[in-house]
Structures are given as structure tokens and as C-alpha cells.
């Protein structure tokens, strides 16, 4: 009995049928559109400039214009060739069920034209798994997307949890907002006496569900097995 994923067929609904307007109102509509697009062109240029100006205004020492849910503070910031470089930034945010998460890094680089994305180096994040279980994530490099509340870690990562898991990844995509993580590269998870290896893994529902796939290998050491039997009052 193999479990097949259910494909949901997405149907596209086409809407059509617009009446043909009389000639005069067509010119009017055309003029209106032309003025509109002119306005849009102006705004398209003006807005980014304004945005940079506002961002520049905020640069200073501490506060960055960030959505209330995510706050970035850093020791000092430098602004060079359109890139904002922050030393020891500290980012705080909230998952969708309002659990706080925090992240520090050695360095963060943010392109002024794209405020939502921050490149991080030397990352140290702590993520809530559930009320009394936190995950600590350490990674060399990653890209944090503030708007989507996600962290894409492209290099080796170590994850440790308060209840004793030590997990090693080659890369991982964390969706802090949803409390999910996924990796399509080999994973090793260790806990006193048992080890799980697989070539891909998904963590869902804030660490409630772990799905390992592709060459899953689990080893349970004797002493782990022993304590199970002792606890069950055998020996």
C-alpha cells in the first residue's frame, strides 16, 4: 500500500465578454489611460527614491524601518554603494501563533533597493518549537526574507533543541511564520543513543511532525534499548 500524493487539479476560470463602447467614450477612455500610465511612470520612479530617502533618514544608529512584527537592531551600520552593512544585527520576530523568535548574526548586508531581504553571515537563531522546547540554529550563511518571514540557509547548519536533539544539515529552508523547515540534502539527527539519517527532511507544525524521506536509516544503541526495557520493569 504505497501512499500517493493527491494532485488537486487547478482549473482556470476565464472571464470574458466586454461590451464594445461607442467611439467618443473610447477616446476619453484612451486619454484617461494615457494620463494614468504617465502618472504611474512618475510614481514608479519617485517611490523608490522616496523609499531610499526615508531609509537613509532612518539609518542612524538604531532603528530600521521594518514591519512591526520584525525588528532589527544592530551595533553599527555602514552604507556603501547602495548596500547597508550592519555589524552584529539582532532580529526579533513572531511566529504565526505569536511565539517570539530571535536571530543574531556577525554581519548583515541589505540592498537598499530591496529592504525585505537581508543576507546574513554567522547566524545564531533561536526558534520556538513548542511551549517548553526551543530550537537553536547556527549557520554560516543565509538569506532572511523579512516580508515572508523565511530564512534560507545555504551552508552547513547545526540545530540543537532543549530536549536534546542535535541535528546536522547541509542546507535548510526555514519558514518561521509557519513554523516549518525543509531540506533536500542529507540530514543526521542524534539523541542519546539513537540516530536518524536520511537524504531529505521536513519539519511541520512547529516541530510536531518530522518527515524523513529517501534512504531513512535509524540506529538505536543498546543502552537506549536497555533503558526502555528497564523502564518497562523487565530487567
Amino acid at each position: 500500500m504505497t501512499v500517493r500524493p493527491i494532485e488537486v487539479a487547478g482549473g482556470a476560470v476565464a472571464s470574458s465578454g466586454t461590451g464594445i463602447a461607442p467611439a467618443s467614450s473610447r477616446e476619453a477612455a484612451f486619454d484617461k489611460a494615457r494620463r494614468h500610465s504617465h502618472l504611474v511612470r512618475v510614481l514608479k520612479f519617485a517611490l523608490p527614491v522616496a523609499a531610499i530617502a526615508i531609509a537613509a533618514a532612518f539609518l542612524g544608529k538604531s532603528y530600521m524601518a521594518a514591519p512591526s512584527a520584525i525588528e532589527i537592531k544592530s551595533d553599527d551600520t555602514a552604507f556603501s554603494d547602495g548596500k547597508l552593512v550592519m555589524a552584529n544585527p539582532k532580529l526579533d520576530g513572531y511566529t504565526k501563533d505569536n511565539q517570539p523568535y530571535s536571530m543574531t548574526a556577525r554581519r548583515a548586508v541589505q540592498d537598499a533597493s530591496n529592504q525585505g531581504v537581508v543576507e546574513l553571515e554567522g547566524i545564531d537563531a533561536s526558534l520556538p518549537l513548542d511551549k517548553d522546547n526551543m530550537a537553536k540554529v547556527e549557520a554560516q550563511r543565509g538569506v532572511f526574507d523579512r516580508d515572508k518571514n523565511t530564512l534560507n540557509l545555504s551552508q552547513a547548519i547545526t540545530l540543537t533543541t532543549t530536549d536534546g536533539i542535535v541535528a546536522l544539515f547541509q542546507s535548510a529552508f526555514l519558514n518561521m511564520g509557519e513554523g516549518e523547515m525543509t531540506t533536500s540534502e542529507p540530514v543526521q539527527i542524534k539523541l542519546d543513543g539513537s540516530t536518524i539519517n536520511s537524504d531529505s527532511m521536513n519539519v511541520l507544525q512547529n516541530g510536531k511532525v518530522f518527515v524523513f524521506e529517501n534512504k531513512v536509516r535509524v540506529t538505536i544503541e543498546p543502552q537506549r534499548y536497555q533503558t526502555m526495557r528497564q523502564d518497562n520493569g523487565d530487567l
Binding site: 510536531k208 518530522f210 518527515v211 524523513f212 531513512v216 536509516r217 535509524v218 540506529t219 544503541e221 536497555q226
Partner: peptide
Amino acid sequence: SGNLPIQIESDKLEVRQN
């Protein structure tokens, strides 16, 4: 035998904490 490691292999493993 109580003193040997147990090795398990499979295509997929789903752990449901709750």
C-alpha cells in the same frame, strides 16, 4: 539479544509528536 544495536531502514519515516 539485548546488547546489540537495532538498525532500521525504510523509504520514509514520519514522526508525529502529538
